[in-house]
Amino acid sequence: MTSGHPDQPFVIGGRTFASRLIVGTGKYRTNGEMVAAIRASAAEMVTVAVRRVDLDRSREEGILHHLDPAEFFLLPNTAGCYTVDDALRYARLGRAAGLNEWVKLEVIGDERTLLPDTAATLEAAAELVADGFKVMAYTNDDLVTALRLEDAGCVSVMPLASPIGSGLGVVNPYYIREIKRRLTVPVIVDAGVGTASDACVTMEQGVDGVLMNTAIAAASDPVGMALAMRLGVQAGREAFLAGRMPAREIAVPSSPAAGMLDRETP
């Protein structure tokens, strides 16, 4: 597809990614549908979770049987962790799988909203950076926490658009824009996108990328929604680069006021 404006490459932690859309692999009805949807999204970076092998159904395959690490960059997460120790443990187990030294750090602080425990996230981020990880940190849309996470050495800071799995879209575009303005590392909006217009609005804020899972996996047709998300992200990015007109609360005519019929020239 043609690109209207020359864009910067999307670089995180020294690695260039082909797509600004990052997708999760959870909640799909079948593995085949998951792979087809991820391909339709054109995402390169794909998140995965670390969980126990099910010993009663030991023939059940892990996700590596379906996603080729040569085709996708797999990003292990610490989803489901509520303490610093758990997050460190899951991150290290993910790294021991031998794919890479990256982690999507999540430390949850509240079960109902799945909002992050930002103090624990900061502590875990510092430990993981010191341990050699490239940390992409899920956080609230809070500027001060985002700045501290950047100071801690995270390769990307990932504020939420709205709560995980909520599909509410960007509830605070002002804070998202300010975080993007103030940070040097890539800002990736993680969680809350519900449909393609949300992805577009998210990217119009000027952020570097967007990460989503449920919006695609829980659509009636995940493959169709994955394509819509890809186009939404692209449209939002192009619109940001193109620079939108200022919004006004009164009308301004699009056609010339001059040259109307039956007017006398003074």
Binding site: G26, T47, V53, L55, N213
Partner: peptide, 10 residues
């Protein structure tokens, strides 16, 4: 022992 692997997640 904890035996773990990658599964789908976001």
């Amino acid at each position: 022992f904890e035996l773990v692997h990658f599964v789908g997640g976001g």
